[in-house]
Structure formats: structure tokens, C-alpha cells
Design a protein around this nucleic acid. Structure first.
Lengths: 128, 128
DNA sequence: CCTTGACTTGGAGTCGACTCCAGGTGTTAC
DNA sequence: GTAACACCTGGAGTCGACTCCAAGTCAAGG
């Protein structure tokens, strides 16, 4: 599969795909004789993995370390797990913080709705 | 309250506090005669609000627009609500995406744990 | 053969959000 | 009255993560 197809099917620009490979976020993809990338199933799973992790805010640098460990084989399993566990904790706290923010947004929107219903009469808006 | 106190109590650098004010994310704070900022209760509530929204990933630009509307008074209530509703939807989808990532992390960690228990014997790790 | 179009590279540019700095001012402590 | 310190400003620098670009290569179609 060529880079343009991967790009289209997974919603990642070709620039980003090449960038990820360049910085080691994705191991080198096989090439045709003329040097053109040909993504196989495994490559695509890796791309999806990175896309998923990035979309949740895991830093590129951490993922590079993780991928490097994966390339080094089974003796790095403990280290890999440690990375994932740490990132999981960070992810959970980000989500908790977002939940708090969501609660506040919900509250504010509710207050605004009441204000609109009452035609803004007599409202002293505590929210901002 | 002086800027250093606000900074310490709310975990925001003085640079960031001044920056927020400069770009209009926080309305101008009152000054002493010699020009030193003196944050009142309302200012601090605003700082907390911005901190909360930013921590959930709401863009600075959107917050600037929102705060500008707040300054313009009650006739902007509908517009303000629209902004919050839109940002709420975006926030919810980010959280959903993060939940998916969390599920995958949990799964991978579990697989790694099993691998460690079995002392890595006979494991063909499908995870990466 | 030559154009078209998708691919390649290395390097530079952009963007959002801070973060730092130099140079200046005001207040307090000795 | 002067040193130390917290504050001020405008502007420049940094950082993470892309994104764009120029210049070049190759395969296929007319």
C-alpha cells in the first residue's frame, strides 16, 4: 500500500507519515526498488497505534522510546509496561480534569439556558 | 492580591498571568498607584475559569472570544452559550477518543502482565 | 521522447501557547 | 541613600508537533 492510500484511509497526511518514520515513531517501511514506501499490514497497525496514542495526547517522545523498546525484542517487556502504566495514569488524570471542566460547562450552559428562557430578566449571572 | 500570590496559589506562572491579560484572556486587573496588579475576587475567579478551560484543551482563541462577549454584557448571552455548547461537544469527543485509547492501554498492559508472569515463555506478543 | 503525476529527500517555516529576558521603576530594610 | 527585591513592559525565544517547499527521481500514457 502506497503512502497516499494510507494517508487517505487513516486521515494522516503523507507529510506526517514520513515525519513519523523520520523521527522513529514508526520503524522504517519497506520500499520498492525505486525507493517508494510500501506499507504492509504491520506498518499500518503501527500507524493506527501511533494515531490512537497521539489522539489521546501521549507525547511523541514517549512513543518514540516505546517503539524503540518494541524493536529491541522481548527483554524490554517490563520497561515497555512501565511506560504504558505511567502514560495510563497521566491519561486518567487528564480525563478526570476534563470531566471537571465538562461539569462546569454543563452547569454554565444550563444557567445560560435559564437566562434565555426568562428573556434575561432579573438575572444576575454568576457565571462568566 | 499580588501577582506572585495568585501565581503560587493557583499554579500559574506570573509570566502566564500577564500573558493572559495581555491577549485579553483575562480583563485588565486593577493596579496600585505605582502600576502593580492587585487581583480581586472576581479576577481570581476569572483566572481559575481560564485555568480550568485551558486544562481541558479549550483553545486560547475561543476563550478570548468568550471573555470578550462576557465583557459586552447580557445581550451576548446567546452567543456565549453557543460557544460553550460547541466546545462541550468537542470536549466530549476528545474524552471519548481518550477512553478508547485508555481501553487499548489497559488491554496492552494486561497482556504485558501476563507475559511477565509467564516469564516471557512461549509468548508471541501481538501487542506492540 | 516528453510530459504528467506521485513519489523521494533535507531543510525551513508555521502554529499555539507559553516562557524568558533586558532594561526600567517603585518599596522596603538597613 | 543605597541595596535588595518584587514588580513592570515590549519583544524575542522556545517547544512540541507538525506542515510546507524546492529540487530531484521514477513509471506510465500519448
Amino acid at each position: 500500500m502506497k503512502i497516499a492510500e494510507v494517508s487517505e484511509q487513516h486521515g494522516i497526511s503523507t507529510d506526517t507519515l514520513r515525519y513519523y518514520e523520520r523521527i522513529g515513531l514508526i520503524p522504517p517501511v519497506n520500499r520498492s526498488e525505486s525507493g517508494i514506501r510500501d506499507y504492509n499490514e504491520l506498518d499500518i497497525r503501527r500507524v493506527e497505534f501511533v494515531k490512537c496514542m497521539r489522539s489521546a495526547g501521549l507525547p511523541v517522545e514517549v512513543l518514540i522510546d516505546y517503539i524503540a523498546l518494541v524493536q529491541q525484542g522481548d527483554q524490554t517487556i517490563a520497561a515497555r509496561k512501565d511506560i504504558l502504566v505511567e502514560q495510563r495514569e497521566l491519561l486518567i488524570s487528564r480525563m478526570e480534569q476534563m470531566q471537571k471542566t465538562l461539569d462546569i460547562l454543563n452547569h454554565k450552559i444550563e444557567v445560560y439556558e435559564k437566562a434565555v428562557l426568562k428573556n434575561e430578566k432579573d438575572m444576575i449571572l454568576v457565571v462568566e
